[in-house]
């Protein structure tokens, strides 16, 4: 589905993504882990065609994507669904409109305008919300929902968009651990059921190892390892996150621990 050749992104002197080569097959599920600042989000934004790489090639579904613009670019974007860490919905709109925003790539501007007054394809939005478990929120205002519910709305939007590829950038870093588990599983199952390719940036190593058949370690803009979960050793993880202690340490190392013992862990103050 994806083929990257020497993909590079520079912001001034900073090299965020450094000559990355990668192949992802259709219907594959890939987790990308690594320290914060490794360039995972930049890679995600190149893969969903928000940013253009500074150098290198990118093929999506066999199509060269680095030189596209205009309607060809929009058509290819429509085939990629994106889920973000947070704040990706329009807070003042009703849930139904945020879900139906997934149809914007297929709708004309006139139809999009009419739907703001009288929502079109309400049943489509309702079915998507049913799949993510919050059908009763169809007419709620989005900013009245909790963080986890908003993330479900974002997933429903991707379902309505019905892309070939789902990209998720740290989709669970702002929700609590047990909900994180549920949302990652939901995404994996929906992608599998729909025959979609799934790439997910994750902060929590355990989620990556538990739910993905392929795990990529990303560090300093480069692929550090690309293995099955069984092959990923403690040593490789330690190397991947080496030097991260400048960042708040509990975020990185306790996460792993906390997740495993999450079920019987007493509530912390």
């Amino acid at each position: 589905m994806y083929r990257l050749g020497g993909l590079t992104k520079r912001f001034g002197d900073l090299v965020a993504v450094d000559r990355v080569d990668l192949k992802v097959a259709p219907r594959e599920g890939v987790a990308i882990i690594g320290p914060s600042g490794a360039g995972k989000t930049t890679l995600f934004r190149i893969l969903n065609l928000t940013l253009r790489p500074s150098a290198g090639r990118l093929w999506i579904g066999g199509r060269e994507a680095t030189s596209l613009h205009g309607s060809a670019l929009r058509d290819l974007r429509r085939r990629i669904g994106s889920i973000y860490q947070q704040h990706n919905l329009v807070p003042r709109l009703r849930v139904v409109h945020n879900v139906l925003a997934g149809r914007l790539g297929a709708w004309s501007a006139l139809r999009a305008m009419a739907s703001l007054v009288r929502p079109a394809e309400v049943d489509v939005a309702y079915r998507a919300l049913e799949q993510v478990g919050i059908p009763e929120k169809l007419w709620a205002r989005t900013d009245e929902l909790s963080g986890g519910q908003q993330q479900r709305v974002a997933i429903a939007r991707v379902l309505v968009q019905n892309p070939d590829i789902i990209l998720a950038d740290e989709p669970v870093s702002s929700v609590d651990p047990s909900l994180a588990n549920t949302i990652v599983r939901l995404l994996r199952d929906l992608a599998a059921a729909g025959g979609k390719t799934l790439l997910m940036n994750l902060h929590t190593v355990d989620l990556a190892l538990a739910y993905f058949p392929r795990v990529i370690g990303f560090r300093e803009g480069r692929i550090h390892f690309d293995r099955t979960p069984a092959e990923v050793s403690e040593e490789m993880l330690a190397q991947l996150y080496a030097g991260e202690s400048a960042a708040p340490p509990e975020e990185l190392f306790h996460d792993r621990h906390r997740f495993l013992s999450g079920a019987c862990r007493p509530l912390q103050a």
């Binding site: 969903n48 928000t50 974007r77 429509r78 669904g81 973000y84 914007l104 709708w107 999009a112 968009q161």
Partner: peptide
Amino acid sequence: SEQPLEALQATGAGRLQIVLY
């Protein structure tokens, strides 16, 4: 805020639709 715009653009929405939504 730019984040909703980025998300709308990523769905393949055109300029006018991004303005509207």
